[in-house]
Design a protein around this nucleic acid. Sequence first.
DNA 1: ATTAGTTCTAGTCAATTTGACTATAACTAC
DNA 2: GTAGTTATAGTCAAATTGACTAGAACTAAT
Lengths: 214, 214
Amino acid sequence: MIFALRPSERSGRPTLWIPLVRRIREPFKGLWALPGGPLTHAESLQDAASRNLRETTGLAPSYLEQLYAFGGLHRSPTQRVVSIVYWALVQPTEAALADESENVRWFRADRLGELAFDHNTIIEYALWRLRNKMAYGSIAYHLLGEYFTLAQVREVYEAVLDRELDPANFRRQIKAAPEIQETDEYLQGGKHRPPRLYRFTGRPGLDPDNRSTP
Amino acid sequence: MIFALRPSERSGRPTLWIPLVRRIREPFKGLWALPGGPLTHAESLQDAASRNLRETTGLAPSYLEQLYAFGGLHRSPTQRVVSIVYWALVQPTEAALADESENVRWFRADRLGELAFDHNTIIEYALWRLRNKMAYGSIAYHLLGEYFTLAQVREVYEAVLDRELDPANFRRQIKAAPEIQETDEYLQGGKHRPPRLYRFTGRPGLDPDNRSTP
DNA sequence: ATTAGTTCTAGTCAATTTGACTATAACTAC
DNA sequence: GTAGTTATAGTCAAATTGACTAGAACTAAT
């Protein structure tokens, strides 16, 4: 499952969106579902996740991490299915390249209807994990481009945590992180004082299964 | 994989131990490995983990949670294997009931030799997760019995985090948690002032896949 | 019975961090 | 120029943390 930032229709502020695909077969034909597909014999879990993502939505995420393995007995009405779910964050430029079509569409993460299988549960859990990681960790930057303003970082936090944060206090905390690098550039074109641009220099922590390739 | 507290041979202080089983077949015949086994068609992931644990070691953990799904291509030299690993915490009384034998033995978690497959990697990751959960969360109590002293809780933290903590400051923090209930009982039999006994009233967070059973 | 040794437990105090807020800087639009 | 807006720095009290002191309550030894 993929998270990306898109401006809200009404307020224009960035909010969390996820792409879903429409089921064209039973079970749950016609309902929306998370993109996914089978694990083949010759690819790692992460590679399979990447590949399925690319094939269904055309997306190539900058951040991909294992979420959870779902294996309850009645997840699918027709057969026993074990799904090892990955979650991804994509930057706005990437997200814009997604193949939207009749059967692939973006939805606001907080306004989903009933989805196929247990996919509502999965998304709920992913949102919970995202909020947790955000509170302690350096994950917000993967939803932004290479250069960003501190106000943009704050907007990401506000979108994910769903509450407003004090701008001054927020920047004090963020600037204390050593992974945030100040640049000499400023974002021009706004209707007010141009904010300084920063960049993120930290590397995402590798998943344990992908640390060593033989 | 299972964690339990056992007194260190030398200092007598509680340290982390895990039970391993000896491989009696190729590959890695003779080496020690994590207990495990196949997932059958009619059981959930968590049920399979419980069952395999019981069958190999006789243990029934009070805390069981999914760790990670390992699915690298070369984990086993003979075939492609995907392992959905669970980790458990057992209380000392339970741990004492484990079936030790020629092929099942407890080892100190920080003094393991070379294990079969990628099991060293898995244990390393589990230790990392345990430390993380300990720092923020109410997990330490599942390694203790129903009643415990605050000094025992501190010893758990010290064993897992591998550093000493100030007794006075530690109890101030722990007592601030609402899940810690003071009792009117005291632990007798020590060579000093008897400490008050406490109990833990929180419930462990359910895994997302086991929240709803149809 | 007294004393030494141990851990338990409450408390103090300075240093650090957090949250609420104020004020100035630097731009655009009119 | 002036009003409007966001960026950014700074202040100050409240809350939290870390280092430490000291008395309480027990056992063991004399």
